[in-house]
Computed example of a mutant assay.
Amino acid sequence: MMGMAASQGYRERLKALGKCVCDGARLMVGQGDYGAYVAHIAKTHPDQAPMTEREFFRNRENARFGVGNGSGFRCC
């Protein structure tokens, strides 16, 4: 039988795996991780304010569907 500490460790690993799977799925459909974006901006561009979460997701959707790049792509 697993002890309390072993059970807790298992739950933490399972939770980390779930986050990794969800992050991967978001990246496959063109939706990045806002938290990772904010950390990147803070580290590499400290003089710039990051986009708001709403702006970030709109930016990712526009990039995914080719909005504003002149390709004329539309999904529907």
Results as ranks from 00 to 15, higher is better:
Gly18Thr: 02
Pro50Ala: 05
Leu27Ile: 07
Gly66Met: 03
Leu17Tyr: 07
Cys76Trp: 11
Phe56Val: 08
Arg64Gln: 13
Glu55Met: 11
Gly68Cys: 07
Cys20Phe: 01
Gln31Leu: 14
Met28Trp: 00
Phe56Thr: 05
Tyr34Lys: 09
Ser7Ile: 01
Asn69Pro: 03
Phe56Asn: 03
Ile41Asn: 02
Lys19Glu: 13
Met28Asn: 05
Met4Asn: 04
Arg54Met: 08
Asn69Tyr: 04
Ala6Phe: 01
Asp23Ala: 08
Met1His: 04
Leu17Phe: 07
Asp47Gly: 13
Asn59Lys: 07
Gly68Tyr: 12
Leu17Val: 02
Ala16His: 02
Phe56Tyr: 15
Met2Ala: 12
Met51Asn: 05
Tyr37Pro: 09
Gln48Asn: 05
Ala63Cys: 10
Ser7Cys: 07
Gly70Met: 06
Asn62Gly: 04
Arg26Asn: 14
Gln48Ala: 10
Met1Ser: 11
Thr44Tyr: 13
Gln31Val: 13
Ala25Thr: 06
Phe57Pro: 01
Ala42Trp: 00
Arg74Trp: 06
Met51Val: 03
Cys20Ser: 14
Glu61Leu: 15
Gly9Ile: 09
Val38Phe: 00
Met1Asn: 04
Ala36Arg: 05
Glu12Trp: 01
Ala36Gln: 10
Glu12Asp: 13
Gly68His: 09
Leu14Trp: 04
Pro50Gln: 06
Ala49Val: 14
Arg64Ser: 13
His45Thr: 09
Phe56Leu: 04
Thr52Ile: 11
Pro50Lys: 01
Ala49Gln: 14
Arg58Gly: 06
Val38Cys: 02
Ala42Met: 05
Ile41Lys: 09
Val67Trp: 10
Ala36Phe: 00
Leu17Pro: 00
Ala25Glu: 09
Phe56Ala: 06
Val38Ile: 11
Met28Ser: 10
Glu53Gly: 08
Tyr37Ile: 03
Lys19Cys: 03
Leu17Asp: 09
Tyr10Pro: 00
Gly35Leu: 04
Val29Glu: 10
Asp47His: 15
Arg60Thr: 06
Lys19Gln: 12
Asn62Arg: 15
Gly32Tyr: 01
Pro50Glu: 07
Gly9Ala: 13
His40Leu: 13
Phe56Glu: 04
His40Pro: 01
Tyr10Ile: 14
Tyr34Asn: 08
Gly30Leu: 07
Gly30Trp: 03
Thr44Ala: 03
Asn69Cys: 05
